[in-house]
Design a protein around this nucleic acid. Structure first.
Lengths: 163, 163
DNA sequence: AAAGATTGAGCGTTCAATCTTC
DNA sequence: GAAGATTGAACGCTCAATCTTT
């Protein structure tokens, strides 16, 4: 009807790659969240919070460090930890060394929850990510994600974690 | 699905790959959403809805087909299209051939919005996804994402209806 | 009865404002 | 004043129930 120019689009082969990537971006988090929700009654973000504490010294982290690890905002973490605290898996206490910080500490029940939940989650990750790929593709995926993360967030803490 | 007799652990190099992938899963959608919100005042999902209509015959799609294309639930689409309709970019009308369907139609203003928004979005995708990769890696990424999507969703786009 | 679509309630995330401690 | 953390309101998504058309 009107003579407006066509919107600029990706090239044909790029379009295919982009379609596949958006598929992963949407479906993979959905399926992992579904597995955790069904088998453990927690979200993927909640799992990352519990798992992060389970790997820390004394099973303890400052809220801000935990937020960085779980890749979420401090406000979000504060609300989520509030819920996990009600469920008895985490407790909070001010840092004795510096009262501005809040320490999040994994309880014994929280530790048990992680131990019970981790195998199923690891299995889901393997099933949906690693099993369908060849060894070479797994290596390629590591390279590719490292580059993309580098381009998205050149100075962020994740680039450091990936070396 | 049955219980795995022995839970497998992620190997060291797999852990690195998984860390990189989770980084992409969280950061890439965030940066693309931020670009669209800042430059065009719409979310990535809203963009996909408008872009999907802009590529369709007569700039028209049934709601259910549009939901499949944009990889979202019908309920979500219905709410989003309601908002886009208020903004004047889409109008809805019952399908004359079958009254159960609702046709979503891109208005002239909606077309203009896509034309104005697409270049910046395509540029962001290039910058964060394609530019940091070699040609070979772009091809590899296409293969890899195709396999992962296949493992996540073996039965096509109707798997969303599962639970 | 079945399929497409919409609606409202419930819930989690985001954002800005606030509070505390240094 | 600055940084860490929390809170409440606004907004969007999810889920189940409902409505319409076939």
């Amino acid at each position: 009807v009107d003579d407006a120019p066509e919107p600029r689009r990706l090239e044909g082969d790029e379009q295919q790659v982009w379609l596949g990537l958006t598929g992963v971006l949407i479906r993979l988090p959905a399926v992992l969240d579904a597995q955790l929700q069904r088998d453990a009654g927690i979200s993927h973000f909640e799992y990352q919070v519990l798992a992060g504490l389970s790997m820390a010294d004394d099973r303890t982290l400052r809220m801000s460090d935990l937020a960085t690890f779980a890749e979420g905002s401090l406000a979000r973490l504060s609300q989520v930890v509030g819920r996990l605290e009600k469920r008895g898996w985490i407790r909070r206490t001010p840092d004795p060394d510096d009262g501005r910080y809040t320490l999040a500490i994994l309880t014994a029940e929280g530790w048990d929850k992680v131990v019970a939940t981790a195998p199923g989650h690891v299995e889901a990750v393997r099933q949906h990510v690693f099993d369908p790929l060849t060894k070479a593709q797994q290596r390629q995926l590591g390279d590719i994600t490292r580059r993309i993360v580098g381009a998205v967030d050149p100075h962020g803490p994740c680039a450091e974690k990936l070396r």
